[in-house]
Write a protein that binds this DNA or RNA. Structure first.
Length: 473
DNA sequence: CAGTCCTTTCG
DNA sequence: GAAAGGACT
């Protein structure tokens, strides 16, 4: 019997369009599918709470899918390099197959690991699939990585020659299975049970869930996507982001599946896929993007340090209904609508002048789609220190944003129930409502719902001055 | 080199 | 329609 091959699952928790898996199957070797939980990997960016929950559910799904095809998933926990080497030694594996991930900490580690395995005569085969194009492969006329989205996306789309996604292997020939941890022993589930409950109500992690989400979106969502995507109460978003992050589905599968969709919706939607791509390429070009502003002049930005304001923002108690609804959606469901991410993030950075890294950290822990490239790239974009930056145009007015994109207040009512009975005219500015109106709606400002923690006009002025000081210096 | 463009907002 | 400025061709 030939030496087995390990399929090292990481951020590719799927069987379809999985090049590493298909290559391993094609090699003819008996297979050992494995996942290693390394709770230290990523350092500061180790798994956040919502991501741990997702991972638990997604691994359970992957494990079932592999079992059905005759090759159970082996689970190990510990330092990824050490555990993989141990698994190779235990099983006599001659090859390791995996799909590439692109975080700077991961590319460094994987390169070291590959060298180490090669010394022992074990070959590593790493495949692409998490992105439409390899980072570094999309450049401007000077051969440099793009810093503006639209030319980047044009250049990528022009070059892209999508091959059809690979089908899932029907049967897997398994090697004798090594000892495995039990998933439940990993304690990936949150300690607060109500958090897990909120997440479970909102999501179906795993490849089948991802496929169903895509099918639903193609049937019900993509046609009107360009029209509805900005209205948080309309649920016009695809909600594929966490599935993409964990590789339960690939951008190529999504790209291919949209081929028959109406043009307007399709282009608007693929553009969002493009932003994901752009952020990943940016991170590869700027490995310190998660902690250092791409625009170096921001090193002397006059951030404030107001723990109380940060706390109010995290809890959704700023007194601005749209911001609060957004922050509570995040906490309850592990998700925040795209437009609200811009509004809530702008509020933290511009209205409160709190460092964007505080927001980045909170989103990292609470988003089910927490992704290093997307999270850091987008926070820098909002703060105005990132790519495609235009800080002066992005002081969102949370009242106007509410009136424009949640005109009847349906979204606010859903997530800020203490305002539910307030008429639409005041739903985004309860402080402006007459005392009688508030009383009839059961609201006592400062008691049942907070007064605004900052005045919009004053905060806007302060932010403009802070940004102007960068240029003056 | 100059001309165009940029996940936009606000008055 | 203006707000600053840099990216890109």
């Amino acid at each position: 019997m030939s030496a087995p091959a390990i399929i090292w699952f990481r951020r590719d928790l799927r069987l379809t369009d999985n090049h590493a898996l298909s290559a391993a199957v094609a090699s003819g070797a008996p297979l050992i599918p494995a996942f290693i939980l390394d709770e230290e990997e990523g350092g500061e960016w180790r798994l956040g709470g919502a991501s741990r929950w997702w991972l638990h559910e997604s691994l359970a799904a992957l494990s079932r899918d592999l079992e059905k095809r005759g090759a159970p998933l082996t689970l190990r926990r510990g330092d990824a390099q050490a555990e993989l080497s141990r698994l190779v030694a235990e099983t006599g594996a001659a090859a390791v197959y995996c799909n590439r991930i692109y975080e700077p900490w991961a590319t460094d580690r994987d390169a070291r690991l590959e060298a180490k395995l090669r010394e022992k005569g074990v070959t590593t085969r790493s495949c692409a699939g998490a992105l439409l194009a390899e980072p570094g492969s999309v450049c401007n006329a000077q051969g440099r990585p793009f810093r503006v989205f639209t030319p980047f996306w044009r250049a990528l789309a022009e070059r892209l020659q999508p091959a059809p996604p690979l089908p899932a292997p029907k049967k897997l020939r398994a090697a004798p299975a090594p000892a495995s941890d039990r998933l439940d022993d990993w304690r990936l589930q949150p300690k607060a049970p109500d958090w897990a409950e909120g997440l479970r109500e909102s999501w179906r992690p795993g490849e089948a869930g991802a496929q169903r989400r895509l099918d639903d979106f193609l049937r019900d969502g993509i046609g009107a996507y360009a029209l509805l995507r900005d209205f948080p109460a309309k649920d016009g978003a695809s909600r594929l982001s966490p599935h993409l992050h964990w590789g339960e589905i690939t951008p190529l599968q999504i790209w291919s599946a949209t081929a028959a969709a109406p043009e307007a919706g399709r282009l608007a939607f693929l553009r969002e896929l493009g932003w994901r791509e752009f952020c990943h390429h940016l991170l590869a070009a700027h490995p310190d993007m998660p902690k250092a502003p791409l625009d170096k002049s921001f090193a002397r930005f006059p951030w404030t340090n107001d723990a109380g304001a940060l706390e109010a923002w995290m809890k959704g108690e700023t007194g601005y209904p749209l911001v609060d609804a957004a922050m509570r959606q995040l906490w309850r469901t592990g998700f925040m609508h795209n437009r609200l991410r811009m509004v809530a993030a702008s509020f933290l950075v511009k209205h409160l002048l709190l460092p964007w890294r505080e927001g980045e950290r909170w989103f990292w822990d609470t988003l089910v789609d927490a992704d290093l490239a997307d999270n850091s790239g987008n926070w820098q974009w909002v703060a105005g220190c990132g790519a495609d930056a235009a800080p002066y145009f992005r002081i969102f007015n949370p009242v106007l944003q509410g009136e424009k994109f949640d005109p009847d207040g349906a979204f606010v009512r859903r997530f800020v129930p203490e305002l539910a009975r307030l008429e639409a005219k005041y739903i985004h500015k309860p402080w402006a409502a007459p005392e009688r109106t508030l009383r009839q709606a059961g609201i006592a400002l400062g008691e049942t719902y907070p007064r605004p923690i900052v005045d919009h006009a004053a905060a806007r002025k302060r932010a403009l001055e802070a940004y102007a000081s960068l240029r003056a210096g």
